[in-house]
């Protein structure tokens, strides 16, 4: 019994004591929904270059945002990094973001990709893919074409709970209005090859397997599949043809300084670091995302899919259409 008690005491001391080791003089606290090895490498490089310690909590974007909202009175986070422009609206509505020094970034950023208190750090396109060894001449040019009767039982797409699909539909509502967006969603459901299941990669694999002909997925996963540890995934990626529909939906990964940040100078410095040429090159080469500046070329794989026309949407307002999007998904029974 005594030994057990000693063990408990030691365990507790270890648990509470060693979570935090050294406290550097300059530091920046990051809440990040970008759970990638590439990001960790970049933070390490930033630390080495500037001497500013990066403290990191990773999680899901929505949960981190809810946490920031709850901690509002006594904020700990300095930088918020996430995926999906639809969260900007919530963050701004709840007054969670602090103004950036945009003069430092305005000279190289692509327009539309930053606001007074947020800035995109990468972009991803949601496209239509198919097996190019099987389908040689795809005629699809718009997302709307997927509604045609000829694709009945041919479409593969993941469930409506996916934030990627929600953002896609929200953007469509913003651009075309509720009626058209509803008709589109209903048309897609009508042409489902199966009840949505699995993630984006699963849709691509099912298209190559022949369970359906066309799949909706993010370009970013094609890149990561092409360097997968699984040789079969690599060969699936090699077979994928990419269709950029007219008004291709492009979502962003973005960064902001959290309101009440106690290290806002360091926060600004970190964000600028992520936007620099060198880091932008790493994002596109290693993680398959599109850079946010014109003077950095996308990776060769991305370039091989050709050029495309991006939809014109207001990222700050995108989030205000999310509720409508979810309602539409429920109404048309897109599970």
């Amino acid at each position: 019994m005594k030994r057990l008690l000693i063990f408990v005491a030691v365990a507790l001391t270890v648990l509470t004591g060693c979570a935090f080791k050294s406290e550097a003089n300059r530091q920046v606290n990051v809440y990040s929904a970008r759970n990638y090895d590439v990001d960790k490498d970049m933070f390490a490089a930033f630390e080495a270059e500037t001497g500013i310690k990066v403290n990191l909590i990773e999680g899901k974007g929505d949960e981190l945002l809810e946490r920031i909202n709850r901690e509002k009175a006594d904020s700990v986070a300095d930088v918020f990094l996430t995926v999906g422009a639809e969260h900007i609206f919530f963050a701004q509505q709840n007054d969670l973001l602090q103004d950036l020094n945009t003069s430092a970034i305005s000279n190289f950023m692509i327009e539309n990709l930053y606001g007074k208190n947020w800035v995109a750090i990468t972009r991803r396109a949601r496209v239509i893919v198919y097996d190019k060894t099987r389908i040689t001449n795809p005629t699809i040019q718009r997302y709307e074409d997927l509604m045609n009767a000829q694709y009945n039982g041919k479409l593969l797409v993941r469930s409506a709970t996916s934030s990627y699909n929600i953002a896609l539909l929200a953007a469509m509502i913003q651009r075309e209005g509720i009626e058209k967006a509803t008709a589109w969603a209903a048309g897609i459901v009508n042409n489902f090859a199966r009840t949505p299941t699995g993630n984006d990669r699963d849709q691509a694999k099912s298209a190559v397997a022949g369970l359906g002909d066309y799949a909706i997925m993010n370009t970013y996963y094609i890149t990561t599949m092409s360097v997968s540890s699984d040789a079969e995934e690599v060969s699936v990626a090699a077979k994928l043809g990419v269709i950029y529909p007219k008004n291709t939906h492009v979502n962003i990964s973005w960064a902001a300084i959290v309101k009440g940040s106690k290290n806002s100078a360091e926060a600004q410095q970190l964000i600028e670091y992520l936007l620099a040429k060198q880091q932008q090159t790493i994002y596109t080469q290693q993680n398959g995302e599109f850079p946010i500046r014109d003077d950095v070329a996308p990776s060769d794989l991305i370039q091989s899919w050709g050029s495309f026309e991006t939809e014109d949407i207001d990222y700050e307002q995108l989030g205000s259409f999310v509720i409508e999007a979810v309602k539409i998904f429920d109404q048309v029974k897109w599970q």
């Binding site: 935090f20 759970n35 909590i57 990773e58 996963y221």
Partner: peptide
């Protein structure tokens, strides 16, 4: 574990999450 952990605290489960959430 994901939401309540302190800064720079990783476990095997959060590592599984990191890869799985990226569909890896």
């Amino acid at each position: 574990t994901l939401n309540l952990r302190p800064f720079n605290y990783h476990t095997l489960a959060t590592q599984v999450y990191q890869y799985a959430s990226d569909e890896r």
